[in-house]
């Protein structure tokens, strides 16, 4: 496979995953903003949402003050925003078109269909009533693409690079949500966890579609350290950092086997996975959650670079 093709497939998967994560973030932010509350505390919601999506600075440059309609438009439709859903779907489709030969018909049709349908939506036609439906649609299109990938693609490098892109993006997203939202909720390292914060805790879990599964796993009310444990170390939770790294090491090992060669990226991924296996949530809190998560984001980025280098993404 061409190095350029691997790069395109890697980013195609990342954009699809990103569109889904952004949709979830908007959904949660919007839900919180709608709650009755005092003063302009909605600012804090949108600020943390934009920060989690990694586009607070870009938003401020473009619109200045926070405004619900503008934030939603920016995250959904603004093609100047490199992480908007419009940008993600267009970039995913562009990469897919460049690698048309690597995709199955089902994958291409879901990709092309998502882009065609989304392009046909007029931003002015999205009302507060239709927003949830639109966000659901984005998530279902991402699910459709992943489903087509899982069900139709050969288990070869096309599949492995898609998996790698998906899980690097997912790990990045989960760690950012954890860092930003948790940080806003928990100004000190004290475990407050009073009843009034319940909605906020559930929002973090909703951002990763885990508010119900949490109950199944812990059979307990929301507790900050349990939520952190769940999102970082739990191997059953499909969006946890641990899960992402389980999937990443599998895909990288398969790739190593297919090509008959291992690279530094294999060691990078395994070291991070080992760290997640051995870590203990108490120790993480003692050292500082923020520091831990920042360290993780750095490692995750490094893995992306190592993979790009090992497989000649840029020639």
């Amino acid at each position: 496979m061409l190095g350029r093709a691997a790069n395109d497939l890697f980013w195609l998967a990342r954009y699809i995953e990103r569109a889904e994560n952004i949709a979830r973030l908007i959904e949660v932010g919007y839900r919180l903003v709608l709650l009755p509350r005092v003063g302009d505390s909605f600012h804090k919601e949108w600020q943390s949402t934009l920060e989690s999506a990694g586009c607070l600075q870009a938003y401020t440059n473009r619109h200045g003050a926070l405004d619900t309609a503008k934030v939603i438009d920016f995250m959904l439709f603004d093609t100047a925003n490199p992480s908007s859903i419009a940008t993600c779907l267009a970039a995913a489709r562009q990469n897919g078109r460049a690698q048309r030969t690597a995709l199955t018909r089902d994958m291409w049709q879901s990709l092309n269909g998502s882009w065609l349908e989304f392009s046909a939506i007029k931003p002015s036609s999205v009302t507060s009533n239709s927003l949830p439906e639109l966000l659901d649609w984005v998530r279902s299109r991402s699910a459709l693409y992943r489903g087509a990938l899982m069900n139709t693609i050969l288990r070869n490098d096309t599949f492995y690079f898609s998996q790698i892109g998906t899980f690097i993006e997912r790990a990045d997203s989960t760690s950012r949500i954890l860092d930003v939202k948790y940080y806003h909720l928990l100004p000190s390292t004290e475990m407050v966890g009073t009843g009034s914060d319940n909605i906020q805790w559930s929002a973090i879990l909703r951002s990763v579609s885990a508010h119900r599964s949490y109950r199944w796993v812990f059979k307990d009310s929301y507790k900050p350290w349990k939520i952190a444990d769940y999102l970082i170390l739990n191997r059953q939770m499909p969006r946890s950092l641990r899960s992402c790294y389980d999937e990443l090491t599998v895909a990288l090992n398969d790739l190593g086997q297919l090509y008959g060669q291992r690279h530094p990226c294999h060691a990078t991924a395994e070291a991070t996975r080992d760290l997640l296996i051995e870590a203990d949530i108490k120790a993480i809190f003692q050292e500082g959650l923020h520091e831990f998560v920042q360290g993780f984001i750095g490692r995750n980025n490094k893995l992306g670079c190592d993979i790009s280098q090992a497989y000649h993404f840029t020639g």
């Binding site: 496979m1 061409l2 190095g3 350029r4 093709a5 691997a6 490098d157 090509y259 060669q261 497989y311 000649h312 020639g315």
Partner: peptide, 18 residues
């Protein structure tokens, strides 16, 4: 595409993942 190709030792080669 042309930037995927390079001539080395008089041979045309493409830049692959391997």
């Amino acid at each position: 595409e042309s930037h995927d190709l390079v001539v080395v030792d008089g041979e045309l080669r493409m830049k692959t993942t391997e």
